[in-house]
């Protein structure tokens, strides 16, 4: 699957969440996603970038433009070196929260994208990959 373009941006302060949102929006507009899909991507990115900052202690967001056959994909990856998630399945449930927030972050974000992949090692960090296709 060829990657046409990629970009990495750090998330270390609260303002960076806004920059992530703006950047995801810019990419989604360039790739001609529908308004609803743009909004879904941006919202999912906002949730996950906030998680990255609050639970992961900051990290990186990586954007990639993918091509697979005739379809295009926008992939957004969230990587931290934080404490990790001991029970992923439970963390994905609605209403689950270990910090401040409504506990909709992970499960909600998962519903907003086409592919959602999460890898976490306790003590080493978490990496979440979200992709939306058009």
């Amino acid at each position: 699957m060829p990657t046409l373009k990629s970009e990495v941006q750090p998330v270390v302060t609260e303002n960076d969440i806004v920059y992530v949102r703006q950047n995801v929006r810019k990419w989604a507009v360039e790739m001609k996603f529908s308004l609803v899909d743009q909004t879904k991507m941006v919202t999912a990115a906002s949730e996950l970038a906030r998680n990255l900052l609050i639970y992961g202690g900051g990290g990186e967001v990586r954007l990639e433009q993918l091509q697979e056959g005739s379809r295009m994909g926008l992939r957004v990856m969230f990587v931290d070196q934080g404490p990790g998630i001991p029970d992923i399945e439970q963390a994905l449930k609605d209403g689950f929260t270990s910090g401040k927030g409504m506990g909709l972050g992970l499960g909600g974000a998962k519903r907003l994208v086409t592919d959602f992949d999460i890898k976490s090692i306790v003590g080493q960090g978490t990496s979440i990959t979200t992709t939306k296709w058009r």
Binding site: Q38, K40, T43, L104
Partner: peptide, 14 residues
Amino acid sequence: MQPAVAITLVELGL
């Protein structure tokens, strides 16, 4: 509230 925002919020579970 814009339609796209409302659709996304509902999908998010809110």
